[in-house]
């Protein structure tokens, strides 16, 4: 049984098929890359896995259990965290408070435990550790909406890590980052995998994808057109076809 299994997933928006019978699976502690031109349906796929959208048809299994009928918060509690391609941190919160929100899933469900103080020293300590992981320890007091894009993207990862996830969905984490930051972020992603977090990575930068991922799924117009190792995908004629005319040429 695969860690995450997506079967025959279809999503229609007003008759437009954003995803068309997509199948793939992710093994535990692996990094799966998802690539494809803009509008291929990658973000829609994440929105369905994380419960924000309901699939038109198909099924998703996480650790052997069907999750596609669950609500987003239930999926988060089950151990799936994500970041957004278009960042959405809690803008008026400090960086530290953004991270703290993710700890709450242990407290929110109970009537009494949700009445506890969230600013306990142990929580703050842990939040600072997570921020240090993503290299943001010096920004903990900054207001999130005032951060530059690169830091907002890192903050999204920190917030996702606060859930202590076993599966992490990263939606174009490198987009908008400076070139020098790529290597650092790639290192972080590798480190997370070492710690036992399974990762699904949507990314446009081919260099990064090829370096990081064991397997790659290629989507085009909602259809999975290829799947395999970086080497296999790179040389697949259909993939090259799909990318012709795109500015992101296969490196």
């Amino acid at each position: 049984m695969a860690f995450l299994e997506v079967r025959c997933l279809t999503k229609e928006f007003y008759g437009l098929r954003a995803l068309d019978r997509v199948d793939f699976s992710v093994e535990e502690r692996k990094i799966l890359g998802i690539i494809g031109p803009n509008g291929a349906g990658k973000t829609t796929l994440f929105n369905i896995i994380s419960g924000i959208l309901r699939p038109t048809a198909g099924e998703i299994q996480f650790q052997g259990a069907r999750i596609n009928h669950l609500k987003p918060h239930q999926i988060a509690m089950a151990g799936i965290a994500r970041t957004f391609q278009i960042v959405r941190p809690f803008g008026n919160f400090t960086v530290l408070k953004n991270v703290l929100v993710g700890f709450g899933h242990r407290f929110y469900p109970g009537l009494f435990s949700s009445a506890y103080r969230f600013e306990k020293e142990t929580h703050l300590e842990r939040a600072r550790e997570i921020l240090a992981r993503v290299g943001m320890e010096t920004y903990q007091g900054s207001i999130a909406k005032n951060l530059p894009l690169g830091l907002k993207k890192h903050l999204e990862i920190a917030r996702a890590l606060a859930l202590d996830p076993s599966l992490l969905l990263l939606d174009e984490p490198m987009a908008g980052l400076q070139y020098e930051e790529f290597e650092k972020l790639a290192g972080l992603i590798r480190g997370l995998r070492e710690e036992g977090i399974t990762i699904v990575l949507i990314e446009h930068n081919m260099q990064v994808v090829m370096d990081l991922c064991e397997r790659i799924v290629v989507l085009d117009h909602g259809v999975k057109i290829a799947e395999g190792s970086p080497e296999e995908v790179r040389t697949d004629p259909q993939v090259i076809e799909a990318y012709i005319g795109q500015e992101e040429t296969v490196a």
Partner: peptide
């Protein structure tokens, strides 16, 4: 407060 800031982001952070 996180619901006020962003409902979707709150939901994927485990908030019902």
């Amino acid at each position: 407060e996180s619901i006020r800031e962003d409902e979707t982001a709150a939901a994927i952070s485990g908030i019902d």
